[in-house]
Design a protein around this nucleic acid. Structure first.
Lengths: 219, 219
DNA sequence: ACAAAAGTGTTAAGAATACACCCATGT
DNA sequence: ACATGGGTGTATTCTTAACACTTTTGT
């Protein structure tokens, strides 16, 4: 008799220089009406990645193809975690940009909420979100993972702001540019972005929009 | 109907400047008689850590209290992973020193095997072992995790050899000593170890025999 | 006296940090 | 002409890496 197996999804996006996470309002007890991460039971014949994708579609009206990076986080289990009894939850983190939610197809009223102002959460979901945030922060330092949270093209200032938002502190402009360019991850598009009464900014793109691990760190 | 949930254990020890992993010979099909990581089904009412500990006791005659550090690795799942059908495996890594195996109480003939000379393994267990080895290598660089694989007291040469064995390459003696001492993790015991026709070596111990995360890396 | 491992410092190269002004544009 | 964000370089400190000889012991 195996324990109950569930999947929970931590989906992050950047919006207005804020890091936001996708939450739903639970349709059923326990914690009915409270905020929670989208989650559901795993079914036989389904990998946990497939359960993750199904959960996003059904519970949050979110097409998982919009996520540019998905990574398994950790498998949480304690007997007391879920008031219904012993549950084991495999958690995944997904990152995207401009993630659309088809609320009319979603069963649990999904929306994004700023990490700086989280509502009270069901289960141990606040712990899971903090774990995911910490993982994301540390990945920024040794991978190109930000690509998943930006448009295809972006200015160096936008890139720096993404880092600052996720890390939670300011970075030095000259040092940041020197370092990120030294990694040879970016290429100039040749296009410029004119955005107001000031000098236009060069638009860059990542050479690879797939996860790359760097030798030295960036923080 | 949830998928089958199992736990697999990767237990490492250092022996004669070799990194060794605990393997069993499977008592039952599938893969009967082949080498595998100790593993079993999770039961309801049991956390996965408890399943891990029970597995070690029953399958490998290994008292889990001998492990000085235990860490969850990853949850592997693919439909094809186990010929019996869909299985999900939560994997744990355990580290110890002088790990005793009570073979007469073990159901599956446990023993340690060098990572440099692994037999053919059942399931995807070779992948899991490589994943664990990689995790261990990277943990050496930013934590004091080696403590779990050494005696309470040790010489700096022993410590360096532990690093070299796990990392798989030589380190510079003077730089290694300078760096490891600069972290302030070690204290001199005042005792010396006389071990042959040469100058005796100072014995050190870790100030904390629990996981600590360092600011800068050691490699 | 010799063999064997323990112990020890310096120099050079590279990486990280701190820091301030000119440039291109819109109004 | 002025306000706004874009773009750039240097000096200092810290970290890493390379490298060889003396010390203490047992036989």
């Amino acid at each position: 008799m195996p324990p109950t197996l569930t999947v929970d999804a931590v989906v992050f996006r950047l919006q207005d220089n804020d890091l936001e996470v996708l939450l739903v309002k639970r349709a059923k007890d326990p914690f009915k009406g409270e905020f929670a991460l989208p989650g559901s039971y795993c079914s036989a014949g389904e990998t946990s990645t497939e359960s993750f994708e199904r959960t996003l579609k059904v519970k949050a009206g979110c097409d998982p193809k919009q996520l540019k990076l998905v990574e398994q986080l950790y498998t949480f289990d304690t007997v007391a975690r879920d008031p219904r009894g012993h549950a084991i939850s495999i958690t995944y983190m997904g990152l995207g940009k401009d993630i659309a939610l088809q609320k009319k197809n979603a069963t649990e009223d999904p929306d994004f909420y700023s990490l700086n102002n989280l509502p009270k959460l069901a289960f141990d979901h606040e712990i899971i979100i903090n774990y995911a945030h910490e993982r994301l922060r540390s990945k920024l330092a040794y991978t190109n993972a930000v690509f998943a949270m930006l448009s295809t093209t972006f200015t160096l200032t936008e890139l720096q702001m993404a880092y600052e938002t996720i890390l939670g502190h300011k970075l030095d402009k000259r040092n940041f540019r020197k370092k990120i360019l030294s990694y040879d991850l970016l290429k100039e598009t040749g296009e410029k972005l004119t955005a107001g009464a000031h000098r236009p900014a060069m638009l860059y793109m990542f050479k690879q929009r797939a996860l790359e691990v760097l030798v030295r760190s960036l923080d």
